[in-house]
Computed example of a mutant assay.
Amino acid sequence: MQRLRGSGSSIFRYLRFKGKAQNSWAAVQDTYFSTKDIFERHRVVFTVGTSIASVATACVGYSLRHLHETRVDQRLESIEKAMRKNHGIEHSEIKNIVDSGSLSLPAFIATAGTTLIIGYGLGWRGGRLYAHRQIRREQTKFMGQIKQKVGKYLGR
């Protein structure tokens, strides 16, 4: 008798745990679907909001870069003045030492090629595959819903 009571209570605990797990999973699904619904209903707002955020980020980045370049120029000018004063080096000689005006064709080709490979690998192919997967998921989901409804009407 004791053995039956023990096994019965463990079955009861299992069913109670299973019910709690199902309730938790249902709550997670409800949260996911409600969040997804909100994003889909407010797609335009999110699109405009992200566009504005992107423009603001670009403006802040440009301003910070400009500030940094200004500080670097000031520092270079102070170094140039110190070199002129201490060593008698002229501006043209300093420019020859720095030689920042040249553009290397091999460096340009390597950078463009790397960018193209990475952009193609991560951008175009990934975007196309992602879109096709989404379309396939929606199609199979839709076909599953149709089969369920047809099955209900046919009594299966």
Rank of each mutant, 00 (worst) to 15 (best):
S102L: 06
G61P: 01
G49E: 02
K152L: 08
T140V: 13
G19E: 01
I52Q: 01
P106N: 01
H68R: 15
T35L: 09
A131E: 12
S102W: 02
V28G: 04
L15T: 11
K147R: 15
I135D: 08
R125V: 05
K81P: 04
K152V: 03
K36E: 07
S10L: 12
E80R: 14
M83C: 11
S7A: 09
G121N: 09
N96K: 11
G121H: 01
L103T: 15
K81E: 04
K141C: 12
A27W: 03
Q145R: 10
R5H: 06
N23W: 02
G19V: 00
Y62C: 05
R5T: 01
L76P: 00
S63E: 04
K81R: 11
G123F: 03
R128K: 14
E138T: 09
Y153L: 14
I97Y: 06
A112H: 01
L103G: 08
S54R: 05
H42Q: 13
A21C: 05
V150C: 02
I135P: 01
Q148R: 15
A112R: 09
G123M: 04
G127I: 04
L116T: 10
T31I: 00
G155S: 04
I79D: 01
I94R: 00
H132W: 05
G155V: 01
R65W: 06
Q134F: 02
I79M: 09
F33N: 03
V28Q: 07
R75Y: 06
Q134S: 05
T111F: 09
R65E: 09
I117E: 02
E69M: 14
V44P: 00
M83L: 15
A26Q: 08
T31G: 12
S78K: 11
V98N: 02
I52P: 00
I146F: 13
Y130I: 02
S34D: 10
L103Y: 12
L67E: 05
Y120V: 07
T47F: 11
T140L: 15
V60I: 14
G8H: 06
A26R: 06
Q139H: 14
G6R: 15
G119L: 06
V45K: 03
G144K: 04
N96T: 07
L129S: 10
G101I: 00
R5N: 07
R156L: 14
L105F: 07
L129A: 10
Y32H: 12
A107T: 10
R125H: 09
S92L: 15
R71G: 03
L67F: 03
G101Q: 10
V45L: 09
K149L: 15
A56P: 00
V72N: 01
K149G: 03
S102I: 03
T115R: 13
R84Q: 15
V44M: 08
S78T: 02
